[in-house]
Computed example of a mutant assay.
Amino acid sequence: MIDLSTWNLTIPVGVPAAVISTPVLAGGYQDHYFQSKEGRLFFWAPVNGTTTANSTYPRSELRETFANGALRNWPYSAADNVLTATARITQVPSNGLIAFSQIHSKNGTSPPVMLGYQSFSPTGYGNVVISFRGNPASANATKIVLSSKIKLNQDFSYEVFLAKNGRLTIGLVEPGGAVKTWSGVLNSAWASHNLYFKAGVYTLDNNGNETSAGAAVFSTLKVEHR
């Protein structure tokens, strides 16, 4: 079973979007946008859902906290910071694009790292894409295709490892067992930023009705600060 005692949950209802506190989430919270059952987490975010204050897109997404519900934010230099997960993307909106994991910054609206999935329906496959903003002053993020061999409804495992020296390594195991890795280094300007992990579904589309949505299932999810 996935431990929910160190996360809160944003769901795409209310203005701004509602946040389910850690104690309520860990106590067995379920709704239309999030379910925890049979040891797995189910996330769903329709394109017409409401958004957080600084976003134009809807989300059903976990955000790192302490067990008492206080937000957990950390400088990358304090520890080796690791998120590991096994997930499958089960639905994408009309543009085919969602995000499923992030390292975000409390100090700004543009994260240093986002993992996204881009579906290409004619081929049956999709890309797992890294959006990497090595410097917080950068206007645009660098896009890296980590894997082009992930279909909808296929499990894949991945790890996001941000070392205390600022080196970021992302690894992914494709459904066939092939391992893909990428590494980069955060600019030292990120050292003054308080960071945190996110995981779930951030639907990068807001055109259409609720039949157009992003959805994902996580069968493992763990965060460590070593």
Rank of each mutant, 00 (worst) to 15 (best):
A53V: 14
Y117G: 04
S148V: 03
R59M: 12
E38L: 09
T52H: 00
A215H: 04
A85M: 13
P16W: 02
V15W: 00
F218V: 01
H225C: 02
L195C: 03
N54D: 15
W7A: 02
T56Q: 12
L168V: 08
I144C: 01
A70L: 13
A199Y: 04
T86F: 02
G184T: 00
N48E: 13
K37N: 10
Y125A: 09
T142Y: 01
F161N: 15
E38G: 10
V47M: 08
L9F: 06
N153R: 14
G126I: 05
I150W: 06
G208M: 04
L83R: 05
E210W: 07
W182P: 02
E159G: 07
N165R: 07
G208E: 08
N68C: 09
V145R: 08
I2C: 08
L162G: 01
N8Y: 01
G27L: 09
G39Y: 10
S110F: 05
A26T: 06
I130T: 07
M114K: 15
P112C: 11
S21N: 09
G214M: 11
T86Y: 04
Y158V: 06
Y57H: 10
A137W: 00
S212I: 04
P16T: 01
Q118R: 14
D155Q: 14
N140P: 00
T123Q: 11
Q30M: 12
E61R: 02
A17Q: 01
D205Q: 07
K106H: 13
E224R: 12
V145S: 12
N153K: 15
A79D: 15
Y125K: 15
Y196Q: 11
T22S: 07
V128C: 06
L115P: 03
I89N: 05
G96F: 11
A137G: 09
G208L: 06
L195F: 03
I150T: 11
R59L: 10
A199V: 04
E159C: 10
M1K: 09
I20S: 03
A45P: 08
A215Q: 13
V160N: 05
G184E: 06
S212V: 05
P12M: 08
S212C: 05
L41S: 09
N8K: 12
S94M: 11
S192N: 15
I2N: 03
R167P: 01
V201C: 09
L152W: 02
L97I: 14
E38C: 00
S183A: 13
V201H: 05
L146V: 07
A99Q: 12
T10E: 02
Y117R: 08
I150M: 09
N8L: 06
P93Y: 03
H225L: 03
N194Q: 14
V13W: 00
P175I: 11
L97H: 12
S119D: 13
V128M: 07
S21W: 01
Y57V: 04
G116K: 13
S77L: 12
T6S: 13
R88W: 06
N54A: 14
G39L: 11
G14E: 14
W44Y: 14
F42R: 10
A139I: 01
N135K: 10
